[in-house]
Structure formats: C-alpha cells, structure tokens
Design a protein around this nucleic acid. Structure first.
Length: 450
RNA sequence: GGCCCCAUCGUCUAGCGGCCUAGGACACCACCCUCUCAAGGUGGAGGCACGGGUUCGAACCCCGUUGGGGCUGCCA
C-alpha cells in the first residue's frame, strides 16, 4: 500500500526567506507534486523573542513568487503551545526530562514551573536515521549531551520538542530539509521515543547551499534574500529553475525547462549529497534564457515595472508606449537581467543622449574621423528616406566610399551621438523610432562638441 | 576537541563495476555570423584529492589518510 506522502516546509520567521530556505521549500514542493502528495506549511515561531510576525507575509510572498504553493497551513507553532506543554509535562512526570535553572542545574520537581526550563536526560543507546539521500545515519547517545526542550526564560517550547510533536501530529511522512539539521535529528527522535511514540518519518537531508568560501549561506554574510531578486531583475521561473539544479540534475541533461517538466522528473533519491555553490553567474545565464523564452506579451508584462516604475531614468511624461513596444523585441534578446532594460532604451525617452564619457572617448576620439563623418551623416540623413534599411545603407555607402570604413566602425560615432553609448539595441531601427528631427539634432549637438 | 556529513573540470552536475581515451551546462579562450552589444554556431583548455585493498576489470565497492563542511545555544 502506498499512501500519498505528506511533507512540510517549516521556516522560522526570524528573517526573510533566503535562497537556502527557498531551495528546501522547492524540493519539498517538487516531491509533493511529483508524488501527488501534500505540502504543509508550518511557521516555527516558538521563540517569542526572535520571531518577527511581520516577516511572515514576506516569506509567504517569496514562496508564491517562486511558484511554490502549499496545501495546508500556514500552521503556527505559537498556536499549538498546549500540545508541546502536555508532551513536556509527560516527559517530566516520566523522568525522561528534568527541571533546570538558568545555569542548567537540575532542580527538584516533576511539573513545569515558572522560570524553570526543562532538559532531556539522554539515556544510553543509538538512533538510526533513515535518510533517502544519505542512507542510514547512526548516532550514539553517548555522544550527545542533555539538551533543553523548554525555555524557562520565557516559558516557551524549544524547536526540538515542537518538531518531535508536530511531525507525527501532522502525519508527516518525509522530512526534507537542509543537512544542517541532520545532527539535531537524533535528539528529536529521542524525544519521541521517550514520549512512547514508535513513529519516525523518512528523512532527506539536502546538501547545503554554500558561498564562495564553501560555508553555509548566511543572511548576515551573503546577499541571499529571495525577496531582493525581483528588484534585481530576475524572473521567478529562472530562480526556481536554477534552485532545482542545485543538488539535483535532470536525467536527460536538459537544464533550462518549465517547472512542470522538472516535477515529472524529480526524484528525492537522485539528490546528490555534496554541498553546492550558489553561482550568480549561472543564475544570470538561466535568467537570460528565460527572458528570451517569453512571448512578446509576456515580456512586455514582465518589463512593465522597468519602464513605468518609479525608478525609471526618464521623466514619466516622455515615455512613449508605442516606441517601447516597437523596440521591446529587440531588447528582449539582449537582456540577462530585467534591471539592464532601462539602460537599453533610456535614450529614446530622455531629452538628450545620456552621458557616458567612456563611450564618448571610445567612439569620438579614436582613429575614426568623427567630426567629418558626423558632418557627412548629418547631410545624408537630412535627405534620406527614414527607414532602417535606408539609413543603414546610407551610412554603409558613405562610410566606405568617403572614409574607407566598414559599417561596424562608421556606426560608432553615430551610435554614441544619438544613444550615448557604444552598446545598445540595433541602431537603425532605433533611429527610425527616435525620428529624423531628434536624430539630426543629436548628431549636430555631438558634432558641435568635437 | 567530540560527533556527523561530504569529496568527478574554477562552478553546477552525468556516471550507480566493463558503454569512460569521464558526458553536459555556466564561466573562460579562439574562430564564424554580425551595424554595436547580445544571442546563435564551431572548436579549445580544464576534473575522477591521495594511499591501500576487493575484482579478470574500478570514477563507481571496502579501509585509511588528507581536505572541506555541519552540529555541539533556554536559535532553528
């Protein structure tokens, strides 16, 4: 008999969702969706002092942004305090745990008392964890010290206790989480044993996500808050796609693909056991791939905040929707990050070509006779038909016949005069959109500076 | 220190005893394409940490060494 699995993602609201947590959430989700199982969202907010309720909404938002949905919850551990308290009292009464003072000295008594904490008395024996990724991992209780399960300081349950109680109570079948939790597992198992439960879930301890120093990603040292990624110009599809590739690889080697295809192929047993470096470079590449995969309409929708948001570099009233729609496909092909979008099109909506000294230097002070060339272009464009192909041909012929320059060289001064930069979308299509008058005005203005 | 986990190109991975003179992807280099930049195409450089076993045969199995990491909190 195979009943459908139940898994959970259990973040503590002590910070925003970071990429490591997101990856754990994603793997739980992938497994649940793969197996037709259930994903429970549980908020581990037992520590009154560290929990910040206002962060919960942000965490849920980040999960949703990634396309991770859940079937039950969020369940708050802070609502279930009585459950943990009852379990703790039982342990106390049975002698499996004892009261402690602030310095962890054992205190007399077998019921919870204000101001006193509770510690488990670790007995002899071993705990064998059944881990889908690592096989069987055994711990000897002789190596484990007595540990606190109830905080006397603020009279709240510790995470080990809450964990031990919740997973069976929620009928969790598979615990999928980071490897940093592996060492805490024997203690959770011990609590359950002392409580008389014969239940243990199957575990899957995911390899840690690490930084360049190969250390566990930390919110403090590493810039890894998922909530920051939309504003950096990442698409949720790209982030989720990349995260799925950390610790797992599709059997057919096709890395960039829709999440439904990843769900089809995902197997917890195939997750590797060694840590993975969170590589922004690869994320960027995948983001570029996803941007290019968008239909024009999808791209326009994704680009909306980048062309009409509060941070656009041009005055809102100068933005021209039809011009934007016309260049959009040209820009879509060249972006890795949506954040790079404004710099591609700003010259179309600014009153003047943007200033970029480096570009100016490169195009105007090089070997190309910029002044003479601009003079010639101005004269030619004043009379030319205003279509991309004509403008291109005009410049090509002019450049070759009068200056002995290939189009690649001849276009540089024109590009910088009009767009301000040496790089950008295809020039002649852009000139058509900018219009003859403004193009000529910018060419003359640039010529005057030489 | 103790316990536990891990070890294939710089990075992410494929490989689950012979298909491996180790495959793919990112990054890097070269060339092609090209109005710039991208994208795309072609090619290149680059790896099984080390030492013992087991086996007819090990990247794959076992042991050890070394290295890295995690935990060791009245955080999770």
């Amino acid at each position: 008999m195979t009943s459908s699995p139940r898994v959970r993602f259990a973040p503590a609201p002590t910070g925003y969702l970071h990429v490591g947590g997101a990856r754990s959430a994603l793997f739980n989700w992938l497994f649940a969706r793969q197996q037709g199982g259930t994903l429970v969202l549980r908020i581990e907010d037992t520590d009154q002092e560290r929990s910040r309720p206002e962060l919960i909404e942000a965490i849920l938002e980040s999960l949703s942004w990634l396309g991770i949905d859940w079937d039950e919850g969020p369940i708050f551990q802070s609502d279930r305090r009585d459950l943990y308290r009852t379990a703790c009292e039982k342990l106390l009464a049975d002698g499996g745990a004892y009261l402690i003072d602030d310095d962890k000295n054992e205190m007399p008594g077998s019921t919870l008392q204000p101001g006193l904490g509770v510690a488990v008395r670790v007995p002899e024996g071993t705990a064998a964890i059944r881990d889908l990724i690592r096989g069987e991992v055994t711990f000897d209780y002789a190596d484990i010290d007595d540990f606190v399960i109830w905080r006397g300081r603020n009279d709240t349950p510790g995470f080990l206790l809450a964990n031990a109680v919740d997973d069976p109570d929620l009928a969790i079948t598979h615990v999928v989480r980071g490897e940093d939790l592996l060492s805490s597992t024997p203690r959770v198992m011990l609590i359950r044993r002392l409580l008389g439960m014969d239940y243990d879930p199957l575990y899957a301890h995911l390899p840690l996500l690490v930084n360049e120093q190969r250390q566990k990603l930390s919110k403090r040292k590493d810039d890894v808050s998922v909530g920051d990624y939309p504003a950096k110009g990442y698409l949720p599809e790209a982030m989720a796609n990349y995260l799925a590739l950390l610790g797992w690889g599709p059997p057919d080697g096709v890395e960039v693909r829709p999440m439904v295809e990843i769900v089809e192929r995902f197997r917890l047993e195939d997750v590797v056991s060694s840590p993975a470096f969170f590589d922004l470079k690869k994320l960027e590449h995948i983001n570029g791939e996803w941007i290019r995969r968008l239909s024009t309409d999808e791209f326009l929708a994704a680009a909306e905040p980048w062309v009409t948001g509060d941070d656009v570099p041009w005055p809102a009233d100068r933005f021209d929707e039809s011009v934007w729609r016309a260049v959009a496909p040209l820009v879509q092909e060249r972006l890795k990050l949506m954040a790079d979008l404004p710099a591609q099109v700003d010259w179309l909506f600014l009153a003047e070509a943007p200033e970029d000294p480096e570009s100016w230097e490169k195009a105007m002070a090089g070997k190309v006779p910029a002044a003479d060339l601009l003079d010639a272009v101005i004269e030619a464009y004043d009379a030319a038909g205003w279509e991309a192909e004509t403008l291109k041909e005009t410049l090509r012929v002019l450049g070759e016949e009068r200056f002995g320059l290939k189009l690649g060289k001849a276009q540089a001064p024109v590009r910088v005069a009009v767009t301000g930069r040496t790089v950008g979308p295809p020039l002649f299509e852009g000139l058509v959109l900018l219009g003859r008058d403004e193009t000529l005005r910018r060419l003359r203005a640039a010529r005057a500076r030489l």
